[in-house]
């Protein structure tokens, strides 16, 4: 096991290196000029040239990459081209908002998906299954921004229960206030995640119910509920560990659309602004962080898998 972890961690270094090259190349291949996002038409061309030089944008792309890489090895992710603040600082500042939102949305989605998926799988092709299927199809196909606007309209404008946007009331520092602001974005995200998990659990349940051990449990007189929640669930949850491992990256990259619609101050909306302005140091910072977490998340999923199902450990 220890060998596996060390090997996998060593693999991350070349992986991250390639991710950084690919990301940089894509940003540079995109048409546009980062300077355009902060100049106004009545600035003098000489000033604009000087700014470009100051930011190193007059150098060839490979030089810009090498300079970035050099700073990177010193632990410096660089400065934003737009607001000139350190990239690392900007990302760290926004992690709590994003991780809190995504974490609770994922948790909520899984918690709802488990009973729904088990119910759908065990009631295959009956009305409960069809209803749950319908809900998850809606979850997959509904545009997230539309759902968000509709929920805001209902809960904020009509019912006045919840605020429209933001993460807190201006000048207020209370956990309750943040939770109140988080309910809508969290529900929207959870609803969109839900369907994937439900479908995994449903098909897992269908498969497991055909297994012999289920028949044996019934033969011993266990009730359906006990069979489902005590025995089937254990097996069905295995693939969910992998899915959650993959979602580690999402914990920090955030949800671009949801964060933008609700003006949630997370990394998704930081990334969106950076992409629009071709602010490559910020784009690179966010991409590398999410690549790193994706790798670590996968590794963690593998390790957890081993604990959850010892058969896997022995075959490796």
């Amino acid at each position: 096991m220890r060998q596996l972890i060390v090997r996998r961690l060593l693999q991350t270094i070349p992986l991250l290196f390639f991710v950084s090259i690919a990301c940089f190349a894509l940003v540079k291949l995109a048409p546009g000029d980062p300077v355009l996002s902060f100049v106004t038409p009545n600035m003098h061309p000489e000033d604009i040239e000087r700014i470009r030089h100051h930011l190193g944008l007059d150098q060839p792309a490979y030089m810009q990459y090498l300079l970035w890489l050099k700073e990177m090895f010193r632990g410096n992710l660089g400065y934003s081209l737009v607001n000139h603040q350190p990239v690392a600082h900007q990302i760290i500042e926004r992690i709590p908002a994003t991780a809190g939102l995504m974490g609770s949305a994922l948790l909520l989605a899984v918690l709802i998906a488990i009973p729904l998926g088990l119910a759908a799988g065990s009631q295959r092709n009956r009305w409960a299954d069809k209803l749950i299927n319908l809900i998850s199809y809606i979850g997959i196909s509904i545009p997230i921004f539309w759902l968000a606007i509709m929920l805001i309209y209902l809960f904020a404008i009509q019912l006045h229960w919840l605020p429209v946007m933001g993460m807190r009331t201006i000048g207020k520092e209370s956990a309750m206030d943040v939770i109140k602001h988080g309910i809508l974005p969290c529900s929207v995200l959870a609803f969109s995640f839900l369907s994937t998990y439900v479908r995994y659990i449903r098909s897992g349940t269908i498969g497991q119910l055909k297994e012999e051990y289920v028949q044996i449990q019934y033969a011993f007189g266990s009730s359906k509920r006990i069979v489902l929640f005590r025995h089937v669930m254990k097996h069905v949850l295995l693939p969910i560990i992998t899915l959650l491992g993959m979602s580690m990256a999402e914990l920090v990259t955030g949800a671009i659309v949801t964060e933008t619609v609700f003006s949630w101050p997370g990394i998704g909306s930081l990334g969106m602004t950076a992409v629009k302005g071709l602010d490559y140091p910020v784009i690179m910072g966010i991409t590398l962080l999410s690549a790193l977490l994706l790798i670590i998340g996968n590794l963690l999923a593998d390790i957890l898998y081993g604990f959850a199902d010892p058969r896997i450990k022995t075959t490796r």
Partner: peptide
């Protein structure tokens, strides 16, 4: 005076109507 960051035009309109 507070300058509140509202990135989405639709949400801004709703926030206006809600007094936020």
């Amino acid at each position: 005076i507070t300058y509140r960051i509202a990135k989405d035009a639709n949400t801004t309109n709703l926030a206006l109507q809600n007094g936020e």
